[in-house]
Design a binder for these strands. Structure first.
Lengths: 239, 239
DNA sequence: AAAACACAAATTGTCGACAATAATACTTAA
DNA sequence: TTAAGTATTATTGTCGACAATTTGTGTTTT
């Protein structure tokens, strides 16, 4: 499973490798959301010095997976519903703009490449008949390609380098493989069409609606499931 | 001069203090844009160990003021025109959305507070007759208040905690005290009106136009000044 | 003379230990 | 018994030194 984003260059230093390991552990929930991080403990667990562990922690903080307080320590961010919704609002703004820029800046080859990718996904989807495959891999691939297509380093760094780790974390923790697969496919198709037409305004609008639809889908699911179990902090809303 | 953003809590550890010092030095151009950073040199200059300097460097990297390559070292980001335009595109997306959210989420007290602030600025502007004051302080204050008004931690962190240091850096390096002061004032006024009317859609559109106008203003200035001096990397376009 | 190789110097990454701060447990007083 | 204050423990911040890698220099070879 290719979980890494296209931004980060391969880990060369040991701090980088440990960073990726911890990142994976946090995203997958092996290190539980909201838990405190013990520097000596983790350092011993990964067989490294505390200095290089702290180096790794700094990278984790950069992609908003942990939070640090001076003289107190680090905690894994806890996955709240408000946090998830705020994240989607931010995505809507950033990816919407990225999509607009993609319509302006993508090369014809990149667009053709994306269209073939969509066709491949289409067939795969028909075969597997709406299984989670599309949601996991295909959706991420599509969004990554659009973001990279913006050719805007600032946007790319912010979305791929920072936000998407959080998004993957929420997806894992909340078990979000929604039944939007087929509808999402159509939306993706229309977005690519707008990009191919070089219609930046439409492309942005469609992308924003696409993400907003995801958000509202989540809000509805939350609204259904939450009243039963009376928890402010929700964990594992496996559908 | 209050240059600090409202996000960061006061520096308690020495790494924090050195971080703020270096940050200031980079923003003001004392450490030139694009220059390589010598860890031993800076550590000696600030009378601290290399470890705590590296801690400070990590924070600088978090707000995109320096870039690091493994086993090679750190460089101050260089201020290119493309970088500036990309930054404004990103701002347009993020602050536009923040403004929309502000229209939805700001309390009546916050809105009233912003309106009085605008009045104060109005008088100050009339007195000083369109001097750079408004541009520097007033503009930042206004934007900060709108962003905080979104009540969206993700947006606040991204914009105030990261992007705005870069924006201040570009403003210093390119000497951007444009003659848009009076027009910007009107735009601010209309934005606050939209927020007070709880019209999120209009508020976002006005904020996006406001920032886009700034960007185009810069583009024009660049287009005028660049053809004369044949430089790919422009420094100090003092108007 | 130019290119390739080897060597030397400097810089970055990693480590373990000490100092300073916060959290915990215990004792004492009301 | 509870509350406050103190002492102890544990954790974080900082330091200097060593190891690994890169960069620059000088030499050799074609």
């Amino acid at each position: 499973m290719k979980t890494n984003n296209p931004t980060q260059q391969e880990a060369v230093t040991t701090a980088d490798k440990v960073f990726e390991q911890i990142q994976h552990a946090i995203v997958e929930g092996e290190i539980p959301s909201g838990s405190k991080i013990s520097e000596p403990g983790l350092a011993k667990h990964y067989q490294i010095s505390r200095s290089t562990l702290r180096e790794a922690l700094n990278r984790l903080e950069k992609c908003h997976l942990i939070e640090r307080k001076a003289n107190v320590g680090s905690r894994v961010v806890d996955c709240s519903i408000e946090g998830l919704l705020e994240l989607y609002i931010t995505r809507e703004a950033l990816e919407g703009m990225a999509c607009r820029q993609a319509a302006l800046n993508m090369s014809d080859e990149e667009i053709a490449d994306m269209q073939t990718m969509l066709n491949v996904h289409s067939q795969t989807q028909e075969l597997k008949d709406g299984v989670a495959y599309y949601q996991e891999e295909g959706d991420l691939d599509f969004h990554y390609k659009v973001i990279l297509g913006s050719h805007n380093k600032q946007l790319i760094e912010l979305i791929c380098g920072q936000l998407y780790h959080l998004i993957r974390m929420y997806r894992c923790q909340f078990g979000m493989n929604s039944p939007r697969a087929s509808r999402a496919f159509d939306e993706h198709s229309r977005i690519i069409q707008a990009i191919a037409d070089r219609d930046g305004e439409l492309a942005e609008m469609l992308m924003r609606r696409h993400i907003a639809a995801s958000r509202k889908n989540i809000e509805n699911k939350i609204a259904q499931e939450l009243p039963q179990k009376e928890k402010t902090k929700v964990q594992l809303i496996k559908s």
